[in-house]
Write a protein that binds this DNA or RNA. Sequence first.
RNA 1: GCCGAGAUGGCGAAAUUGGUAGACGCGCGAGACUCAAAAUCUCGUUUCCUUCGGGAAGUGUGGGUUCGAUUCCCACUCUCGGCACCA
Length: 1199
Amino acid sequence: MAYSHQLIEKKWQKFWEENRIFSVKNASTSSSNKKTFYALDMFPFPSGAGLHVGHPEGYTATDIICRKKRMEGYEVLHPMGWDAFGLPAENFAIKTGQHPEISTNANIENFTKQIKSLGFSYDWERELSTTDPDYYKWTQDLFLKFYEKGMLYEDEKLLNWCNSCKVVCANEEVEQGLHERCGNAVTKKSLKQWMFKITDYAERLLQDLEKPNVILLHGWEGTGKSNWFPEITDYLKKNGIDVYHPDFPNTNHPKYAEWKEFFQKEIQPKLQPNSIVVGHSLGCGFLQKYLSEENIKIGEIVFVAPTVGDCGVDEIKDFFTEEFNYEKIKNSADNIFIIAGGKDKYITSDEFKFLAKKLNAHFNFYENLGHFLENTSIEILEFFKKTVQSVLDWPEKIKAMQRNWIGKSEGLLFSSPLIFEYTKKRGTKSSCEGAHSGKINLSGSSRSSQIFSIVLNNIKEVKKKNMRTHISKIQKTFLINNQKIVFDGFALWEHWKRKNNYEKKYRKEFAATVIKSLSSLYYESEFIGYFSSKNSIYRIVFEYIEKDVKRIKTYYRVTDLSSLYQKNKNNLKIQTYSTHFEAFKADTFFVIAPDHPLLPKLIADVDNKNAIEKKCENILEKRAQLGFEEEKESDGIFTGRYIQDPVGNGKLPLWVASFALADYGTGIVKCSCHDERDFAFAKKYNIPLKAVLFPEDKEEAKKVKNLEYCYSDMKNGVLTEPSKFSGKKSGELREEIMQYVEKNNLAERQTNFRLRDWIFTRQRYWGEPIPLVFDENGKCYPLDSSELPLLLPKTDNYLPSSSGESPLAKITDWVQVKGYITKDETVKIITNSHQVPKGVEIQNFTRETSVMPNWAGSSWYYLRYMDSKNSNEAFSKEAENKWGPVDLYVGGAEHAVLHLLYARFWHKMLYDMGIVSTKEPFKKLVNQGLILSYAYQRKSGGLVPTDEIEEKDGKFFEISSKEPVEKITAKMSKSLKNVVNPDEIVEAFGADTLRMYEMFMGPFEQNKAWDTSAVEGMYKFLSRIHRYFTEKEISKTCPSPELIKLTHRTVKKVSKDIDEFKFNTAISQMMVWMNAFQKLDTVPQIAGGKFVRLLAPFAPHLAEELWQKFSPEDETISFKSWPTYDESLLVENNVKYAVQVNGKLRGDFEISKNATKEECIAKAKTIEKVMNNISMLGGEEKVRKEIFVPGKIVGFVVK
RNA sequence: GCCGAGAUGGCGAAAUUGGUAGACGCGCGAGACUCAAAAUCUCGUUUCCUUCGGGAAGUGUGGGUUCGAUUCCCACUCUCGGCACCA
């Protein structure tokens, strides 16, 4: 019977689909403790080109794992969907005039057909598309949750702008400074964008790439082995997590001071930024007090049955103070959990609730549980299961790329006084005078009037209930690190009072609003508030600052504005950031970025101001145009200003330099000759240099004549400058110098990240509309959740507009809406007046017209799959608990940074809100290699299309010129005519062949070239299997013990290889099995049955077909148990020894596995060849050593 | 420049507590079946030397440790991927 793959595959695909074989339910079944497994493929963008042979590679791998897991009894979630928003669909629409929705749906249909033809065991009932309103409703819903949390702000951003196409283009669309579509130069254009504060999570996104450790702190009369501690310790250790469970001293009569000393000595050094510290009972009390005293940063705190406040027990009184600094405790961890019971004998439920509220903790309360004194605790074990699932099992490569992208660096922040003689400008009032005339003054800022009006705008709204500040719009524009703001609160109050009807009761709100406005404006800057007298406003404002405004680093209470202003002016500090401060003694100049916000102010009074401005423009223009591959020569100009070096190098000049970046560090760099870039710059402009590091070799150092040698040797250099550090290696100095400068107030430690906030808006059509509206004053409101989904309006005009605005902006009747503000500060849109509840004010609103980037939909789709039909929420907690996190995530490495980072970011925000239960979304990540194709390359380097090549004697020639060409591997491309269409392969050889071949090509994670003749080889293998199983009768017994052993060996090897993603060797083992068995006249029942089940994950259609022969009563092989093997059968009775003389193979022999060393050596000596070799080397008496490796080697060392 | 991965026959590749290098497949060669071809099956296939017994070399290059190294250590070359004026 011939192997008719087409019939077999169609038949089984139909069967699987009609019987919904691979659908899984969310509700727990009767066997509720069934293990679950969630395997996910990166969902594809359904492009018009259809499926590529690269797609099925990853899909096959997950399918093999899933099918095996099902046979092992797991409940398997294996979904598929479409990432269908995005530029390509829109560009296709622009080109063809066809609406993106139409082309997208057609592409999805085509992709579905193609993917289904490959026989993957997807649960198609959970299929989703990011473009489906039922899906993006929840994308918008999550967006609003993040907006509520304050994770979004609006900012002006410089974007790539193509003047010829009048369109904003993504970085990916810009090549060498030119727009890839039209070839014209790309410039920068400033546009307002919504920004996601991913930088708030930079540290955690970095830390959670590493394994956390866990510290367990016991309570009164407990030990590190009390209660459930051993159970949890074992569980965590088994999962590779380090656990410390110390015994506090004097546990029966605990003293806080003793415990503190112990903790500092034993535990403190083990704390990492992602440590999880767990306390039980008094262990929590200790931790509360300790954390409110010390500055510590850890990952999570878990309080189990914590003591709260003063327990009223005298013995442990010193563990409590009147009230802890809960703010400080809260800030020392990313998340705090409280696990407590309602039947606790020592602490009341109200006390737990009090603590949870104070610490803003996640509160896991169990009504029927007590003080957690038992030996086991399901609740705590459950908690740590989630911890274990949050430990990433990812390729080092991807983790490294993420670390790189986040780009953390630790260094020192130097504050240097600017030498800056203040000169009064002609004709203008001094700032002090201005203050008294009722205006806000911001020292040196030309934009004070703008800020003033914005603050006033906010204050106007104090009257309204539920006041919401709308300051984010201008936040970053005025964020100047080095600037101190002088703000006259009293003057503002007077001003406001005049303009509005004064009412005493608004005072508090007024104060709050002012401070809130300014604090978000001057986020992380130094803030100086000034109030003319100690009146009540003064008091209220500063109370407010002290309590609620954390972001302001420092503030001063000053009552005399003019003296403050003068002091501030003369002490303007320039801050510089350095990670290579070992050579700070060599610093001889400063550089500032040409686009630094402080620069205009610095050069305002300088003579050659115009020349400097021109130079800056020049540099910035060049920077915008240059692709990064081009040579970058540094360029700059002297600013005319000097800075007093805080670490004793005197008065140093400040230069504008092209290599300084405004948005890294502080935008101002302190430079020395020991940095290659600084060195080149100084040489170019003849800035004096001073070398302080020399090679360690003193003799060499003496020979050094020029500075070039010095800077190149900085890494191993020794500081020679006569100071307390001289004579030490720079590497060893880092910590010492850090401590020295900190102690002497010369600098402070600072961490910097390369990661920038995420621009979350696109001025495009084909994306999720953003559910925000603006009122007539430009204040932003979120839409009410009842307004979701906010549908993407239908239009034929989806071309980007010339203003850089979204195409949606042109749909006026969609953009301009009427609505009212709800109690929750959200906006409800009304289409007719009947809908309007009584007592609300109808206002005009304008919609946000940008759409989300296509990373939005892909940042959470894995969660929707868990509960894709849910119409009440994005996904239910139960579903997330059952399936999350994704156990296995497979896809290309091209998403190593953006998609995976964004998804992790969203997941972490959801975790903090208590919406998901794990810190990380994807437990194990595997990247498939690229599938390449052969291509032919001329000697000159040009590539020749495949159909213009002929082969002669294994060599390749170009037909037209007869020139020899070289066969290489390259990406598949239409122009090279080497694209392989999976449909054709399925048609000719079948899905099983395609699956098997792609798995057999080579290691899964490696790139590999497509070879169609090898595909035929795989087809032959499957045909051989088919022939063997269909043409030969089943026999009850297996004729040879060797073959039984082979079968068991094959089961073991294939099982292990699948788990390790070594599909190629699993298949080769099946080939070995087949080669041996096909020589038989029959199919031994047990061995054959095992083999077919091993084959099932790889070639499911064929396996189903063959299984019918073994077990005709079974409907499907999909849930038959995975074959087992008997380890004892794998041990051979006889083993083969290799015999070596001086490490070279000279023969072998077979002997019983129980043979002793002596027996083996004696046997080895009977081999003629061995003895010949020994006598050639001098005979048996020269044998110095006999080597015996049991089961493997007998060796003789002859000398 | 920085970070990461890798280099083994004509080709894809296998081989881990250091122990017989090249499993399995492709390709190629020989043979069987056939009038013939295809398909199928059998045998061979790292290179060089050979008196046909066998011998020598061999896992990017050069060193080292070891009785023994694809595997461990040091230095280097090349290839691929990512980042890049990041102080």
